[in-house]
């Protein structure tokens, strides 16, 4: 019996020490939906921007709907592993997954990754992190015009770091180069963190980053322009590309999708719930403080929205050589 006790005790100790700190007070309120915790799968690893935005939603979800939003990660294949399994999951409204543009458009165009863009049933696109050109605060490039001038004088010599290829950063770089008639060199890094490190360490001249980079590294970097319709509330002094004559509004868009088998009324309900979180002033403030921009594309308009974005992405991706 000794053995039994030991093994039993090992697991008990493990479970208890964790449970002791993992005690979350869950008081279920009587409500039609949801009446149990909702699983929210992030097809990337923890700590990334997809994770952080989901975490922001987490506490508001609990507050508004009385149920926990349980975040789990399914990283791999740049999100493709998660999305290719989405439709095989239970479609009862208690399973949803984060989706990202341009990923869900570009990935299936590259090779067979087990899903097509149209297989994904999105219910809401809730925010985007606008693309932005960022330089080191000590750089002598002071404005977007300086940057364009430098690139014109030194074709190909302007190195710009960015997160990955076929990503919002990369496609923005391709589109901007074409609009400005310049040639810059895009250096892909694994994730925004490494791309910023390369900028701060002067390994590259500039970075194709996001507004969130400006928020996170305030004082160390200078944003030259943001790819938004209007200026970002947190950065009233940074012009938009549009103001400067470049028709570029882009970024990493994030939303939520459900398995195909999810009934219509549940899809609509989820869409409304996420919209409600998005409308919360405190939520908006927190998101904007992190440099994100909010977006309200509900279930009904989502397909049209994705299709419209997809066109621009596909063209840029083809130009960038990411897809054949």
């Amino acid at each position: 019996m000794d053995i039994l006790r030991k093994i039993g005790a090992t697991t008990v100790v493990a479970a208890m020490s964790l449970a002791a700190i993992a005690m979350i007070s869950g008081v279920p309120t009587a409500q039609a939906f949801p009446d149990k915790p909702v699983n929210y799968i992030i097809p990337f690893g923890p700590g990334g921007e997809s994770d952080i935005t989901a975490r922001h939603q987490q506490s508001f979800f609990k507050e508004k709907f009385g149920q926990d939003l349980v975040i789990a990660y399914k990283p791999g294949g740049g999100g493709a592993v998660g999305w290719s399994q989405l439709n095989g999951m239970i479609g009862d409204g208690y399973t949803m997954m984060g989706i990202n543009l341009p990923h869900i458009v570009v990935k299936p165009l590259q090779k067979d990754v087990g899903f097509k863009t149209e297989d994904i049933t999105g219910v809401y696109m809730f925010h985007y992190t606008p693309d932005a050109i960022v330089v080191n605060a000590s750089s002598d490039i002071k404005s977007l015009q300086d940057l364009v001038d430098y690139a014109k004088a030194n074709p190909g010599k302007l190195t710009m770091s960015g997160s990955g290829k076929g990503t919002a950063n990369h496609l923005a770089q391709v589109r901007f180069d074409k609009m400005a008639g310049v040639k810059t060199t895009y250096v892909a890094f694994k994730g925004t963190g490494k791309a910023v490190a390369a900028l701060l360490g002067d390994q590259v001249k500039a970075e194709w980053g996001y507004t969130s980079v400006g928020a996170k590294h305030e004082g160390k970097v200078r944003m030259l322009a943001v790819a938004m319709e209007q200026r970002h509330p947190k950065f009233p002094d940074v012009p938009t590309f549009k103001e400067l004559g470049f028709d570029l509004v882009s970024g990493a868009y994030r939303g939520i999708a459900v398995p195909k088998s999810t009934p219509e009324d549940v899809r609509v309900k989820l869409s409304e719930m996420i919209g409600e979180i998005n409308a919360d002033p405190e939520f908006r403030k927190r998101m904007e403080n992190d440099g994100m921009a909010l977006l309200d594309v509900g279930y009904k308009d989502l397909n049209a929205f994705v299709a419209e974005q997809a066109k621009a992405y596909e063209e840029a991706a083809r130009e960038a050589g990411v897809i054949k």
Binding site: G76, G77, G78, K111, V113, G164, G166, F189, K190
Partner: peptide
Amino acid sequence: GVAEISADIRFT
């Protein structure tokens, strides 16, 4: 798998 920086899908 998916190359970490070039995003190409290799050896799958």
